[in-house]
Design a protein around this nucleic acid. Sequence first.
DNA 1: GCCGTTTTCGGCCCGACTGTTTTCAGTCG
Length: 582
Amino acid sequence: MPDPPPTNREVAARLQLLGDLLEIEGGPVRHRVVAYRRAADQIRSAGGPVARMALEGRAVELPGIGPTIQAKIVELAETGEIGALARLRERVPEGLVRIAALRGIGPRRALAVWRELGVSGPEELAEAAKAGRLRGVAGFGPRTEAAVLEQLAAGGGAAGADGGEPRMSLGRALALAEDLARDLALAEPGARVAVAGSVRRGAELVGDIDLVAGTDAPERVHAAFAAHQAVESVVAQGAARSAVMLHAGLRAELQTGPLGAFGNLLQHATGSAAHNLRLRQHAARRGLSVSERGVLGSDGTLTTHAEEDDVYAALGLAPIPPELREDRGEIEAALAGVLPRLVEHGDLVGDLHVHSDWSDGRETIAAMAAAARERGYAYLGISDHSQSLRMAGGLEPDRVRRQWELIDQLNARDDGIRILKATEVDILTDGRIDFDDDLLAGFDWVTASLHSGFSQDARRLTERVLAAIESPHVDAIGHPTGRMLGRREAAPLDLDRVLEAAARTGTFLEINSQPRRLDLNEAMAREALRGGVRLVIGSDAHGAAGLDLVRLGVAVARRAGAGPADIGNARGWDELAAMRAG
DNA sequence: GCCGTTTTCGGCCCGACTGTTTTCAGTCG
């Protein structure tokens, strides 16, 4: 084995390409395409290194990966390429994949432009379209030719960028989706409107917004949707579905159906596609056929369900939480009755990571405490920054002590919420903690975080985090990888070593709920739980409204399969304090 | 290529919409 084994992203990309090229080539291999894509999806979302697993013969344990694909992964790890893929590339130009990815074009039309015009990439396609030659190809006309030109001019089909479709953070998309749903419900009071799709599943990045409405006046709901102020243009419009482009740069889709089939519609539109595929295969084995219209029996009778839970019940399954619907074994678990009880927003009884106006927060400690009490919390950890984070107004030790005096005074009021003396202390570039041990010992809760030195190599970054974990005063590691969606990659920590140390010392790892962080992410959180590591969900709020961001962290935790027992701040303070490390 | 309440072969999800056609294939979700 010459090089380090390929990353999950690299393995997934190769298998994806293999599937894409096979599909374009056509022929009697339809289901092999699906198999490669499913494997690529599984690998992208796997928590552990799949190449290493394949070398140990364990990749076949992942759903969708069998002996053949495992062998191809081993081949890739050992030789740097997959022979079958290399041979396929000689038969089918790779540029056709980028042509097929254009909206309105697919594998068949991509193959047609190559066969009929010799076009093998987006640049040649643009030339052919400009020259008006595209409309002569079977299946193409002037409309499609114009659409192709428009997309290519807008940068569609460009090399690099994996897919290239715009994606939005869950935080923003959720707010947009809920605004749309609320306004549709106001516009048509008889309708039952809900957010579906990847937003409902709590995916950290979403490519579009899906809404459903149960109604007996679908035309009015679609009209209200098209006329909404957030809508830039209407992309498609039919009797049961319409799609729009939002000013925010994201696509939104609305599906409607009768109120009596609202559960079927919601189930269908929530997906994921892979989950629905698997669900329908499961149904087929029972002689049933599932769609957004209802469940069709073998005798031809269609049964509709107003509630989504009843759709799953009709298939002999316990209700599956949307966050788990990714075809990672959830249907098998529902069948066996072993789905986990996932943590819920309402399980949280405190927040251990919020800032006040003592550092870079906007509100007073008293105001933050009042906001936490309104949310039903029993405790709130005021965790302002430490001295070295000067640009965020980090606290010097004497200011810390003065803050403690104020907290004691506020707690003496005994008004229903306990304010904890907490801190978000910097892990310095040499691994030391930014306060001395005497001061650290006076805190109720210590979160240690990386805020600088991200350009260090993986070994040094890992050593810094390990040093913090080993400190007897550190209770939790805040936003452990330091990633910022779209701005900064996760620090390349040796996750195995971090998880081992956290589990051994009882140090909590945070799921930070800031929309741009969501750190740990779901895959790492899943690995942490598997490794026996306990988690906390922190808002990292810098104002009262920021407390509500924990719903995003809860979504990450749920997608990772966390139950209330896995989450520190789902426990009362006395119980949590007794669990503190050291 | 994967997988099993039709188990080691023979299956493999379903419907809406668009643009191209003149009854439908391809694309999309």
